[in-house]
Design a protein around this nucleic acid. Structure first.
Lengths: 229, 229
DNA sequence: CGACCGGTTGATTAAACTCAATGTAGGTGG
DNA sequence: CCACCTACATTGAGTTTAATCAACCGGTCG
């Protein structure tokens, strides 16, 4: 099923796959057990929504990974955030998205009508707070990330990235990276070559071990934390 | 009065200057005409609140300019945003500030008890929405700024900065910069020397005219916009 | 099998940083 | 009032970091 989804055009998104799933497990919509989401799948590199588009839906990521990014006219890209399973994304205060979202891996999402979410927030003050929390958490991350982008060097950026990913995957020490070197570079404000070189240096310095390009083991977390600053 | 205020320690902030001012003119608190703020002044470079501190107040800037920033352990600084007269700042979803705020110039603010703001938002859904809007607008700016920090070169950063400031001062074409070269550098992720050189180049290229270091006239806005990308 | 994609590595370049000197305006005190 | 001092800004010279350009490697897919 997910394969057939990859081939559809982004604009034809909504009307497919009517399999409804209860959203009661979501912290956001916990207050409305009757609230339902539509399941949907996206293939790798498929656009979920584009910068400037109307905000029809709010998305909850079930599996896979999603990047939200902005692109300059000449194609330079900055990834603001990676979303992993369980994350909500695509919520806007206004009518339009101010960044685009793309699948970094094949992924499954639940779609919630923005109008329904708004309605819920309009009558339920707890729900309204949860929407605010969601935006506040994104801002929290953005402020930390601005410091990284503006004031940290390549080594520090990479150490910070590895520790962030380790945290998000539950500090298991072994990370299965759901994104390419280019994605990492566009997240950290580097080139993919610099990312690759950095990983190699970390490996030479016994800070990490690369099982393969996508599987990293953090060998010396303390030293990584020191490098991050 | 403002002079005496500059000399007090940041921790003794609250209990001084009990002159209350109605906040009805504020779009945020328009729904609560009885809501009052306490006027207060800060001297240049004085800290208004520190990173990690409890969020006692929400601030409305009456005059002057404020920077919100994060600092690394070794003293590198990233300014997230400049706030100008009329702006609200210091609002957090959580209990603690996740950045510090400092006066870039002598400035006057109105302080609102966070508890009161929370209370208001707890019963008034419109007020709750306005808090969300405030955070959402900060996020909007942060996402744009991440693109600038991660993917734009010094020239583009400076052009973007000048156009942003021009916009915020009402597109008069002449800007009285309320911040130093170092502040600009820490906002754009550059050094102050690079900022200075950039301004000089813009002046040589007849894009801007520098009356003095703090007074810039935008001579060729179209070319600046092209440089920004 | 060959093409392609993603990743790694190497050589060179360029942009911005660092260090340093000089300039300038505002404030203070003799 | 002028001399001096300080803080901020500008400019220059040399260095460093990360970007660019390019080659190569290994797996996968048609």
């Amino acid at each position: 099923m997910s394969i057939s989804m990859q081939t559809i055009s982004p604009s034809s998104r909504p009307a497919v796959d009517r399999r409804h799933v209860a959203a009661t497990s979501s912290p956001l919509f916990a207050s409305a057990p009757e609230f339902l989401g539509t399941s949907f799948s996206y293939g790798r590199d498929e656009e979920i929504y584009g910068d400037g588009e109307d905000t029809e839906f709010v998305y909850k990521l079930v599996s896979g990974a999603v990047r939200t990014c902005k692109i300059t006219q000449d194609g330079r890209r900055q990834i603001a955030e990676f979303h992993l399973a369980g994350d909500l994304f695509g919520l806007e205060f206004g009518k339009h998205h101010h960044h685009s979202a793309e699948a970094t891996t094949d992924c499954k999402v639940l779609l919630f009508k923005r109008r329904q979410v708004e309605c819920l927030a309009g009558e339920n003050i707890e729900a309204a707070r949860e929407l605010w929390l969601l935006t506040a958490n994104q801002l929290l991350h953005a402020e930390e990330h601005m410091l990284l982008l503006g004031r940290r060097n390549a080594t520090e950026k990479l150490a910070a990235f590895l520790l962030e990913m380790d945290n998000r995957f539950g500090r298991t020490g072994t990370i299965e990276l759901p994104m390419s070197r280019r994605d990492i570079a566009d997240y950290l404000g580097l080139t993919l070559e610099t990312v690759s070189r950095g990983f190699s240096q970390f490996q030479d310095g016994k800070l990490i071990a690369l099982v393969d390009a996508r599987h990293v083991t953090l060998v010396d977390r303390a030293k990584l934390a020191r490098l991050r600053g």
